[in-house]
């Protein structure tokens, strides 16, 4: 992931290559989710003969899982702050907690998807259903990749390779993780909180 050969030199911007690359990548991700959210907004009323959004969403349930995901941003900050203090033990603890909270969110999404399918909302039911599963699915994949990154950090820490001087690596993974959380705030608002049509 890191190309440390060149990062030991000072950079023009004062930001390391790795961190700047992550920022640029996240800029690109904004457009990815922007296009997916636009697609969803276009089709939120096109439920054809299938279930309508207003019939099927369980807002209290998704609010709880959203809360879980947002709390994982807090634990991510704690993980970074622990490592910056040189507190390897707490760093591992909070990395693990962050990954678990992320996994809990993904578990919630799996549960939500299966119950929707049981209630008759499949991927091919309507333009609405295709757009819904695509948007939330892409977000879920992003969270899952984040969990893989967190677990890699944790394994690397257990093998003794994640020290105070590597805290920027944790910071960069953190940037990604916070981005995915912020995107969820938009998705949650657009999909669940905006008043939804019923059939």
């Amino acid at each position: 992931m890191s190309e440390a050969a060149t990062t030991e030199h000072p950079t023009n911007t004062g930001i390391s290559h790795n961190k700047l690359a992550m920022w640029v990548f996240l800029g690109s991700e904004c457009l990815l989710f922007g296009a997916l959210i636009s697609t969803y907004l276009l089709y939120r009323n096109e439920f054809h003969t299938g279930p309508a959004p207003g019939d099927i969403f369980d807002i209290p349930f998704t609010s709880v899982s959203s809360f879980v995901l947002l709390m994982s941003s807090l634990t991510m900050v704690l993980a970074l702050s622990a490592l910056k203090r040189g507190d390897i033990r707490n760093n591992r603890l909070w990395l693990l907690t962050t990954a678990l909270l992320g996994a809990l969110f993904i578990g919630g999404q799996v549960y939500e998807f299966t119950s929707f399918v049981r209630e008759g909302l499949g991927f091919t039911t309507s333009p609405f259903s295709s757009a819904f599963f695509t948007l939330t699915g892409f977000h879920g994949i992003h969270v899952s990749l984040g969990i893989v990154m967190l677990m890699s950090l944790l394994i690397s820490s257990l093998r003794g390779n994640l020290k105070e001087k590597n805290s920027e690596t944790v910071e960069i993974v953190g940037l990604y993780w916070h981005f995915v959380d912020v995107v969820w705030i938009f998705i949650f608002t657009v999909i669940y909180l905006v008043p939804n049509p019923t059939s």
């Binding site: 997916l36 096109e46 054809h48 991927f123 333009p127 295709s130 757009a131």
Partner: peptide
């Protein structure tokens, strides 16, 4: 690039998995 990526994903999903992004009969 991410915008064409999304467009191509919608096309792949429509062709491979029967998604309804461009299915006018269903109101797309």
């Amino acid at each position: 690039m991410p915008v064409i990526a999304v467009a191509l994903f919608l096309l792949i999903f429509s062709r491979q998995f029967g998604a309804n992004f461009f299915n006018t009969e269903m109101g797309a």
